Computed example of a mutant assay.
Amino acid sequence: MRPSMLCCRHWLLAVLLVFAGCAHRVPAPVAVAPVSPATWRQVDNQLLDASRSATRQAEVYAQGSMEHWRTRVYQQTDEQFIPWFSGYWTQEWLSLKVGWYSLNNRGDAGQSSWRLAEYLQEQYQERVLAPVALEIDADEIAGEAMEFYVQLLRQQLVQIGNRYQLPAPQLDQHLGQVLAIDLGPAAEQRASLAQLLRVEPIARLPAYGPLLQQLRGAAATERDSPAPGVAQVAQVTSDKLQAQFATRGVAGAVAAAVGRVAGALISVGVAGVRALVQDHDREGLQAQTRRDLGAAFDQAWSRQLHDPEHGVMAGVYYLGRQIESQLQAPGEDAAGVESP
């Protein structure tokens, strides 16, 4: 082999080794400049605006869901509870129960009406609230409103990150310093804003359950009481039935005086007259019951919708307050306006 060819081969081998070394060389990492404090202040203001906007949209969602729930409760009340309650044999059965309650409570009308309310509550739950809950549950609306709020906030965060070209690690660290849920020192009672926006659905967060439990604390106590309007209906019904006892007592005494056969006929006759009277008064009883239930239910519905501590929007308001208190700059009010 000629020396010139050997020299060329050596030169080519040297070039290939240089390229191979370059291919295996790891490029030096490029340092990412930290985000300036001024930019973070702008980001925080954008997050506050996003939170307020998401809260308003969640309110619209919750209102619509509660309107649907109320409509279904009204329909079920008209179709199932009121016809059952105003029926002749139901009223007869209720009168027996009120009489029994009065005997056991030694004539205490207050205790009689309360025990009747408990019974009517069971019937209202079975005939109205439970069937409606299979379609839409007021208790679940609170969780759905929170999920909707977080989804909207998550969408806005993507836009904010792109707008300011925020490095993902720095943004995650910044959001990790904001406590979105702070119920106690334990880890399962806390969640950062970064965790809240990262976990889908938010029900997977360990702190989600304790938050719902706290928000529903007072509502759970109220559920042990008669449903809205049931106690009022029970009071009116108890008073009316107890007022009828005197008339029934006279009919019973007359029947006992004339003997067993004649007494049975008189009792049947009295029952027939009462059935006609009850049928004649049924429309009025239904209208009164509908008014009593409707007025009380509307008040309870409004409280459940607007109560900032335990209503269906309580979870959204809690998250909004948490974010507001930590991202809002000193000297600004809740609307983001500098105080004088």
Rank of each mutant, 00 (worst) to 15 (best):
Glu324Tyr: 08
Arg303Asp: 13
Pro27Lys: 14
Phe148Pro: 00
Ser238His: 05
Val273Ile: 10
His310Pro: 02
Glu200Pro: 03
Ala275Met: 14
Leu17Gly: 10
Asp44Asn: 14
Tyr101Trp: 07
Ile82Trp: 00
Trp93Val: 04
Leu6Met: 08
Arg303Asn: 07
Glu79Trp: 04
Arg106His: 15
Arg290Pro: 00
Leu327Trp: 15
Glu140Tyr: 10
Gln111Pro: 01
Ile181Lys: 05
Ala334Ile: 12
Thr247His: 14
Glu122Arg: 13
Asp239Gln: 12
Arg216Lys: 14
Thr289Val: 11
Ser65Glu: 15
Ala300Tyr: 12
Ala23Arg: 07
Ser267Phe: 01
Phe85Gln: 02
Asp298Arg: 06
Arg190Glu: 02
Phe148His: 13
Ala14Phe: 07
Gly336Tyr: 08
Gln235Ala: 12
Trp100Leu: 14
Asp333Trp: 06
Ile136His: 11
Cys8Ser: 08
Ala264Gly: 12
Asn105Phe: 15
Ala109Thr: 05
Val128Asn: 01
Leu116Ala: 05
Ala33Leu: 11
Val60Arg: 15
Glu144His: 14
Val15Pro: 02
Ser65Asp: 05
Gln63Ile: 02
Arg248Met: 08
Ala117Met: 10
Gln156Gly: 07
Asn105Thr: 11
Asp239Leu: 12
Ser339Ile: 13
Val158Pro: 00
Ile181Arg: 05
Gln322Ile: 02
Glu67Ile: 09
Ile141Trp: 00
Ser267Cys: 02
Leu103Pro: 03
Val236Ile: 09
Ala220Gly: 04
Pro226Gln: 05
Ala231His: 00
Gly259Asn: 14
Leu116Trp: 04
Ile160Met: 02
Ile160Thr: 07
Leu215Arg: 10
Thr71Ala: 15
Ser86Gln: 05
Leu12Pro: 00
Thr77Val: 10
Gly284Cys: 00
Gln322Asn: 11
Asp333Phe: 14
Gln288Ser: 06
Gly184Pro: 04
Gly269Cys: 04
Gly87Thr: 11
Trp100Val: 04
Leu13Ala: 06
Arg260Trp: 02
Tyr149Phe: 15
Val60Leu: 14
Glu324Ala: 12
Pro37Tyr: 07
Gly284Ser: 07
Pro210Leu: 11
Glu147Asn: 11
Tyr74Asn: 11
Gln304Ser: 08
Ala256Glu: 10
Glu188His: 14
Asp172Lys: 15
Gln173Val: 04
Leu116Gln: 04
Val277Thr: 09
Asp224Gly: 05
Tyr208Gly: 01
Ala253Gln: 13
Asp137Lys: 09
Ala168Lys: 14
Glu222Pro: 06
Thr90Arg: 13
Leu305Asn: 05
Ala227Leu: 10
His24Cys: 07
Leu215Asp: 01
Trp69Pro: 01
Leu212Glu: 03
Thr55Leu: 11
Ala20Trp: 09
Ala58Pro: 02
Val26Gln: 12
Gly176Ser: 12
Arg274Thr: 02
Glu338Asp: 03
